[in-house]
Simulated assay, not measured.
Amino acid sequence: MFKKMFIAAALLAAAVSQAGAQEKAPFALDWKFEGPAAPYLIAIDKGYFGDEGLAVEISEGKGSLDAIPKVATGAFPFGLADINSLMRFLDQNPGAPVTAIMMIYDKPPFAVVGRKDMGIETPKDLEGKVLGAPPPDGAWAQFPIFAAENDLDMSKITVEPVGFPTREPMLAEGKVAAVTGYSFTSTLNVMRLGVPMEDQTVLLMSDYGVSLYGNAILVNTDYAAENPELVKGFVKAVAMGWKDAIADPAAAVKPLMSRNPAADEALETERLSLSIRDNVLTDWVKENGFGGIDADRMAKSIEQTKSVYEFVNEPDAALYFDSSYLPEEPFMLQ
């Protein structure tokens, strides 16, 4: 009897010791607890992060640029943010300890969402109209490239700075003719506010000449240098979360609903499904695996950024993406 109690106590002590050994790793999300956040919550609830020695706590974000300074200052070791905005941040803050290590949106969701009844059908239709754009929005950050690729006269477009909470309501109320945003965010939010999908025009920037990547996992490089195995474990857990989400999007949003009970479960399932279809599980990812980038395409995206942004320092892809924390055998999501 005593022996059994001793063994039980030893096992309990080992479990407590193992839990205590987990490294706290705050993760700065790009946006709210909506459909595309589900894979990271799955990784927490199913213990994928825990299995890698990480105690991950996820914080909501305020836009796809929001996480960059959080990670650069070391307040968060990990974040999710737009890699194109990261390029500009590092140009303006040379030597900042932050880089991308895992591509999430192989095809970015940057979009202009407009109303057909207000005359928005093509990019040119934006001229003479009011465009609502939140200043911290990743899609707005790339709008100059979209404008240049489609020969838009910016002097003919009235840009109305709007807040994220008011962006879709203003479009639904007809106060602006179009907004910049993520395709899976703005379209569904506007639909929920009474504008059917068939009455919306969705101009995906990637369909109109914008050859960029989207959001990526960021890491504080000082943290990564000290904890390389934990960083490798983090990206592994993220990949497992996305794989589960792809296998069953409806089940994937359950952890989301427990954090955001006011969310519409069906809507968030649709939002997650759209992000998987259009942004994550692309043809390139199906063939080459999840998380990496193509060097030639990255070079092209830098050149495209140079066409609308004057780099102070010579751009260097090695500063923006470090693939060394990804496995030699790529993550396959199906």
Score class of each variant (00 low, 15 high):
Met5Ala: 14
Tyr105Asp: 14
Gly95Lys: 12
Leu267Gln: 12
Ala19Ile: 13
Ala19His: 10
Phe184Asp: 03
Ala224Gly: 09
Gly194Trp: 12
Pro108His: 15
Val195Arg: 08
Asp51Met: 06
Thr185Met: 15
Trp284Cys: 05
Thr73Tyr: 07
Val253Met: 09
Leu204Arg: 13
Ala14Gln: 01
Tyr48Ile: 00
Glu127Lys: 09
Val253Thr: 09
Ala21Arg: 09
Gly119Ala: 05
Thr201Val: 11
Leu326His: 05
Ser64Glu: 14
Gly194Gln: 11
Phe321Lys: 05
Ala250Tyr: 07
Met332Lys: 14
Met154Ile: 14
Glu173Phe: 04
Asn313Tyr: 09
Thr221Ser: 11
Ala10Arg: 02
Leu11Asn: 07
Ala247Phe: 06
Asp296Arg: 07
Ser211Val: 11
Ser273Leu: 01
Asp264His: 01
Met197His: 15
Ala15Ser: 10
Phe89Trp: 11
Glu287Trp: 02
Trp284Ala: 12
Leu256Ala: 05
Val285Tyr: 02
Asp207Asn: 13
Glu328Val: 10
Pro136Ala: 05
Ala111His: 09
Asn227Cys: 08
Thr282Asp: 04
Ala133Gln: 08
Gly181Gln: 03
Tyr325Gln: 07
Ile302Cys: 06
Ser307Lys: 06
Glu314Asp: 15
Phe290Ala: 01
Gly214Gln: 03
Asp51Tyr: 00
Met191Ala: 14
Ala216Glu: 06
Ala299Arg: 11
Pro26Tyr: 07
Gly241Trp: 08
Asp283Asn: 10
Gln200Tyr: 12
Asp137Glu: 15
Leu193Thr: 05
Gly194Val: 11
Ala317Trp: 03
Thr122Met: 05
Phe290Trp: 03
Val308Asp: 06
Leu267Met: 15
Lys24Asp: 10
Asn288Val: 08
Val112Asp: 02
Lys232Phe: 08
Arg192Ala: 15
Leu274Gly: 00
Ile276Met: 06
Arg297Phe: 13
Lys3Ser: 15
Gly53Lys: 01
Ala263Phe: 03
Lys4Gln: 14
Leu90Gly: 01
Leu267Thr: 11
Glu287Gln: 11
Ala28Ser: 14
Leu126Ser: 05
Ser17Pro: 03
Gly114Arg: 08
Phe89Asn: 10
Gly209Trp: 12
Gly50Ala: 14
Ile293His: 00
Gln334Phe: 14
Glu121Tyr: 11
Ile44Asp: 02
